[in-house]
Structures are given as C-alpha cells and as structure tokens.
C-alpha cells in the first residue's frame, strides 16, 4: 500500500503536454487551480471538469494511472461530502430529503445547498488533483525542478538559495522511490519478526512503527553521506555556476496553452456572471 505513493512520478511519453515548457506548465497549473476556485455555478464547474478531462486525454497517460493518483484522497472526498450533505442547514436552505430516525425524534435532513456544496467540493478536489498529477506525469523531475528554479530565480537576488533548493528537490524526487522501497523492506522484516503494524490502538501502532523508523533514518543518513561523496567526486561544490543539458525554451505550443487557459478563465468568469454564483 505504501507503494501507491505517486508523488513526482513521471510517465514517459510524447504528447503535446509532455512537449510543453516546464515553466509554462507550472505557471498554467497554478492558474488552473485559481480558475477551479473562481468557478461559481454548475455551468462553469462543468466547463472546468471538461477542461481537466480534455487535458487528461491530451496527456495520453493511461486512465488507470490517473485513477491511482486520485485514490489516496477518496476517503477525504467521501468524508467532506458527507459532512457537507448533513451539516449545511439553516433557515434559507431547501430540504431535499428527510429521513426520520426513530430515536428521540431526530431527523436527518439533506438540503439542496448541502448537496450542491458536496458536488462542488468533490469536483474541485478531483480536478485539482488531476491537474497537478498531470503536471508530474508529463514533466520529468529534472525539467520540473529546472522550471521551478527558473520561475524562482528573481528570489536569488534576495539571497534565497534557489539553486541549492532546486538541487534538494532533484535529490528528494530521486530518492522517494528508493526510500519507499526501503520502508517496505524494513516493514516486512519487522513483520516477519512478529511485530504487528496493522492492528491495535493508534498508540500501539505508533509504537510499533518506531522499529521501522529507526533503521530507515540510519540508512537515510548513510545514504546521504555516500551521496555527498559521489556528488563531490563529480565536481559539485554547491556554489559553482552550473549549466543544464536540457534548456528550457518557449515555443508556439506554449503560447497556445497559455491562450487556452486564459480562454478557460474568460469562459468561467462569463458563465459566473451570466448564471450567477451559487457557491
């Protein structure tokens, strides 16, 4: 189950999304997230959802992989939907459904507003996650960090160590799969010695996890020391100028993507104005 973590996973491909410039993708993903929160009625919400699905199709990432990246938040979505459904009640709401509980006269009331909020939240969260996983699926980690480094470059003038930060991100992305594998291995080792990681009270489970964390940390520190040696051996000093094999270049398709997102924003705002905001 721990192997399901898909942060920073890249899906090799050659789709239009893959070929866009990383800086543009980063900026547009951010813009898309804003648009997701701007939309205020079902028409604009539908437009957003269609746009997100269109992007998913355009990326040619297999649906199974996309679903897998959505899986970790299913619980969160269900939970917030239920809360929204049940707790959106005040004098201006319209009851849709009333379920009398034969206990002290309690009644579960599902209101129209509650249902709307639930649908909105669900679609928004799913779109948010879909768009951000599309970013990592279609951008190699090195391009992602290079793009981020470029976008943050102005901060270097304020003495923010942008290059070092980008290197940290590169290494973090590189070592996520390695450490995940290692955690799995240590967990299995501890389980085979009879430790119980899956049942018991929360406190018991936290305690059972300590023998997993200690070896994990020790090995991570050893790795870090060896990695530092390997990097220094290859002339990395942490302070010197570096070049990049892959140069970022804005091309026509990047401007097309920019226009598409601007169009989407325009569409959402128009629909908001036209049909009014309900959320």
């Amino acid at each position: 189950m721990i192997r399901d973590i898909t942060i920073g996973q890249y899906f090799a491909g050659d789709s239009p999304l893959h070929r866009c410039d990383a800086r543009m993708k980063l900026a547009l993903t951010f813009a898309f997230m804003i648009v997701i929160f701007v939309c205020g009625n079902f028409f604009s919400l539908g437009l957003i959802a269609l746009a997100a699905l269109a992007l998913a199709l355009l990326s040619r990432v297999p649906g199974g992989m996309l679903l897998r990246s959505l899986r970790p938040i299913v619980m969160l979505v269900v939970f917030t939907s239920v809360l929204n459904l049940l707790y959106t009640t005040d004098e201006n709401t319209h009851a849709l459904l009333q379920i009398p509980l034969h206990f002290r006269g309690w009644v579960i009331t599902v209101t129209r507003e509650g249902a709307f909020t639930a649908i909105f939240t669900t679609v928004r969260i799913l779109c948010l996650l879909l768009v951000s996983s599309l970013l990592t699926y279609t951008t190699t980690p090195s391009m992602l960090t290079a793009g981020l480094e470029h976008l943050l470059k102005p901060l270097a003038k304020l003495r923010v160590p942008v290059a070092a930060f980008a290197m940290m991100m590169t290494l973090a992305l590189r070592f996520v799969p390695t450490l995940v594998e290692e955690t799995d291995r240590i967990m299995n080792a501890q389980k085979s010695r009879g430790s119980n990681l899956e049942t018991g009270s929360l406190l018991q489970r936290v305690k059972a996890f300590v023998p997993v964390l200690v070896p994990l940390f020790i090995s991570a520190f050893r790795r870090a020391a060896e990695l530092a040696n390997a990097m220094e051996s290859r002339c990395y000093t942490g302070t010197n100028e570096r070049t990049g094999m892959k140069q970022l270049r804005l091309r026509a398709r990047d401007y097309i993507a920019l226009s598409a997102v601007l169009l989407l924003l325009g569409g959402v705002v128009t629909l908001n104005v036209f049909f009014g905001k309900i959320v």
């Binding site: 090195s142 590169t170 590189r174 390997a230 000093t237 100028e241 570096r242 990049g244 094999m245």
Partner: peptide, 27 residues
Amino acid sequence: QNPDNQIIAAIVEDDVAFGPENLCVAP
C-alpha cells in the same frame, strides 16, 4: 560500491549529465 547512493537524478540521462553540468560544459 552502492549503485543506489551515487545516482543523483531520477532519469538516467540527467544523471550522466550531472558531471558535465558541474563543469559548465555547453548544453
């Protein structure tokens, strides 16, 4: 010795490029 602890990038060709990048070789 340990191949896992000396590969720096998440893609093979980016890792090979790491050294020359540090030497400021042209792209």
